[in-house]
Design a protein around this nucleic acid. Structure first.
Lengths: 107, 107
DNA sequence: GTCGTAGTTCGACAGTCACCGTACTACGCC
DNA sequence: GGCGTAGTACGGTGACTGTCGAACTACGAC
């Protein structure tokens, strides 16, 4: 068949589609919080494989999909690699201080 | 028996016992978020019965206990009434901007 | 073309969680 | 004393969620 569905188109909510509850839910997990911290600390996008998390690939995919759907991270495809980055601007615009407060946390 | 256990002593974590993840988890629920919003909007403590939530009493007790254990709300006993208030100072000190970011959310 | 790598999808499973109704304790008032 | 109110404790249930392994697609290099 010619219909090469390709990898999923990476769904991302628009800025005004992002809800506080969704963001909080996305951040309320140790693995996802670790991902966000790494992205914030790096300051640039990171490929899935470049993230250090104590779970298998499939679970990591699951967490990244939740973070993406919540509007916390954005994805960019390049070949078979998927780069993830924090949607800092959108989050800061919608919930000023939230992300900084979370990242400033001692633990 | 003479051992009147009385109502539970209202456990509350010390400031340095509060974790980001616990707070995020506590806020990541529509009912609890509504409670926090009401407490923040009021600016003063509110009794359990004074909170407007679409759940039964026992469920409300459950949510308040979670908020208390997470360090988001504090409780004060007075007779049979239990007054709840937001631990603004502690939260702002630990995670500056977090609470404001959540409350500033459009929805 | 073949192989290896990057990442997703699909069950399946165990643990957690929100919710409720009922029973209970504690206080205040009559 | 008895009664009503405020809130908690307990037991149970259905739904969600994090986790994994295995199978799959897509790209790049040889």
């Amino acid at each position: 068949m010619s219909k090469s569905v390709a990898l999923p188109p990476i769904v991302m909510p628009a800025r005004d589609e992002i809800t506080v509850e969704g963001v909080l839910r996305a951040l309320a997990d140790p693995v996802r919080l670790a991902i966000v911290r790494q992205l914030a600390a790096a300051g640039h996008e990171i490929a899935c494989g470049g993230l250090t998390v104590p779970v298998t690939k499939s679970t990591l995919t699951h967490h990244l999909s939740i973070l993406r759907q919540a509007g916390v991270v954005s994805g960019r495809q390049e070949g078979t690699t998927r780069f993830n980055s924090l949607r800092r601007k959108d989050l800061d615009a919608l919930f000023p201080g939230l992300l900084d407060g979370v990242l400033a946390a001692p633990r």
